[in-house]
Design a protein around this nucleic acid. Structure first.
Length: 432
RNA sequence: UCCUCGAUAGCUCAACGGUAGAGCAACCGGCUGUUAACCGGUAGGUUGCAGGUUCGAAUCCUGCUCGAGGAGCCA
């Protein structure tokens, strides 16, 4: 397929003075009697196309019939135009209407959340939503590029699982040919197995949580990048995570200036992110909270408001490490200096976006892991395969999981994670 | 599951016990440079559903449905 027959709107600048064809949808049009302005979008950007009645009366009248979101091919001469936001305009020489749209429900005026969510399949056409989805694509690509460049192998984890991975969160149950199965909440345990096979691995796919969480940070179905590496210790793991997150921010800053501006993102807040990220032990975080007048007991887990208070003290994401073992997952390695806490850390995004990474060194000792499984009241027989990883050449290893939607929401500076995925699944909504 | 808020024209909202209204969208007309263009006109309603109070209910009360924000839970 020859894609050079028409030009993408984002590339129009390099065709100044040429006659080109563009293909897309009508975003809006304005007219003032003898001049008509068509704003065309093609997924890569918006461009204003100009027609005058004097020069082309036939085209001028045809253009007036074109409704919002009609699809069309336009030919015209690319002209540098300082008045245009894009810097270029198209002087129209030809119009081919492909399909005239019915009256389009999503006008250029304000709409409510419910109205837009019911029409998510159309809402994603709006410039703001398209910008977010382009940035999401880049974030996902940058995750893969980063890990591939560090010799990680993509090893996909199953989505259908026979039991809870961590035993903590609520799972969606499915009927697996008359036996019970669940949608995966994490690929982590499988990652540990593939890491023992391949050394450094990651999986990247959807994960499912059935908790009835109803906040701007929660989805029922969200995407998680999970990495796991043999011989990686707690400290190596932290360094890997901060390098990754820094890389994501820099990549978006490099490639998406225009999109960030369209989103009205305060770019200086992203530019302020720097290495190394601050590190705060759980115990220090508790003190910080108490200093700031938030009463908090050592041993409790942080709530969303606590995370926000912690994040507000830093301009980069902040690691909170060495949580009490009893509020974290069973597989996390105890700190040899204080077995009450674990060798793991959560990475909390700035500006109150919440936890974007959870990671830890994993227990490599067979008998300790067996004991922890029993302490957490998990079915030991279901975990025999997982315990095998400690029976046959166990090594210290570490890993983490990064939530894509929260990361994208933070980088884009948007209010709610539902806009950071094409079709969000929230507590009371799974259509369209 | 709990707390708070909301539901009126296609959309965003107003009217808060006394004739249901505006802006935008749609439709008709006007205007050479507009940036959510603007100007004039037309049409558009079982006020979420079911009861109740009242001479009279969009408005007050009760229940329900749907949704939003938050808490808990979780990432």
């Amino acid at each position: 397929m020859n894609l050079l027959r028409w030009v993408l709107i984002k590339n129009l600048k390099s065709h100044a003075g040429e006659e080109v064809e563009i293909r897309g949808w009508l975003y809006n049009q304005r007219s003032s009697g003898k001049v008509r302005f068509l704003i065309l979008r093609d997924g890569t950007g918006l461009v204003q196309c100009v027609l005058t009645k004097e020069e082309a009366p036939g085209l001028f009248d045809l253009a007036g019939e074109i409704t919002q979101e009609s699809s069309l091919k336009l030919t015209g001469t690319v002209r540098e135009e300082p008045r245009a936001p894009m810097g270029v305009e198209l002087s129209v020489t030809g119009i081919e209407l492909i399909s005239r749209a019915e009256p389009y429900p999503i006008t250029l005026k304000d709409h409510g959340v419910d109205f837009l969510a019911d029409r998510r399949h159309l809402w994603i056409r709006s410039p703001r939503q398209a910008a977010i989805l382009r940035i999401r694509s880049t974030v996902e690509q940058a995750c893969r590029d980063f890990l591939n460049s560090r010799d990680f192998v993509l090893a996909d984890a199953p989505i259908i699982t026979p039991n809870a991975c961590e035993g903590t969160s609520t799972l969606f149950e499915i009927n697996y040919h008359d036996s019970r199965a669940y949608l995966s909440q994490s690929g982590q345990l499988y990652n540990e197995a593939t890491a023992m096979a391949l050394g450094r691995v990651y999986c990247f796919g959807p994960t499912f949580r059935a908790e009835k969480s109803k906040t701007r940070r929660h989805l029922m179905e969200f995407w998680m990048l999970e990495a796991e590496a043999a011989f990686l210790d707690y400290e190596d793991n932290i360094k890997l995570q901060e390098d990754l997150v820094y890389h994501l921010v820099q990549t978006v800053l490099e490639r998406h200036r225009d999109d960030l501006r369209l989103l009205k993102r305060d770019i200086s807040k992203l530019e302020a992110v720097s290495l190394p990220f601050p590190r705060l032990s759980y115990t220090e975080a508790v003190s910080l909270l108490n200093e700031k007048g938030h009463s908090f007991q050592w041993g409790d887990d942080f709530g969303a408001p606590d995370e926000t208070v912690i994040s507000e003290s830093y301009s980069s994401p902040v690691f909170v490490h060495r949580f009490p073992a009893k509020i974290k997952a069973f597989y996390m390695e105890p700190d040899p200096k204080n077995p009450e806490v674990i060798l793991g850390a959560d990475l909390i995004a700035p500006e109150g976006y919440g936890e974007i990474i959870g990671g830890s060194q994993r227990i490599s000792d067979l008998s300790l892991l067996e004991r922890k499984i029993k302490e957490h009241n998990l079915p030991v027989d279901q975990f025999q395969w997982y315990l095998d990883l400690r029976r046959f050449g166990s090594v210290p290893h570490s890993g983490f999981g990064l939530g894509i939607e929260r990361t994208v929401a933070w980088i884009c500076g948007i209010e709610h994670v539902r806009e950071s995925i094409p079709f969000p699944r929230t507590l009371y909504r799974m259509h369209p």
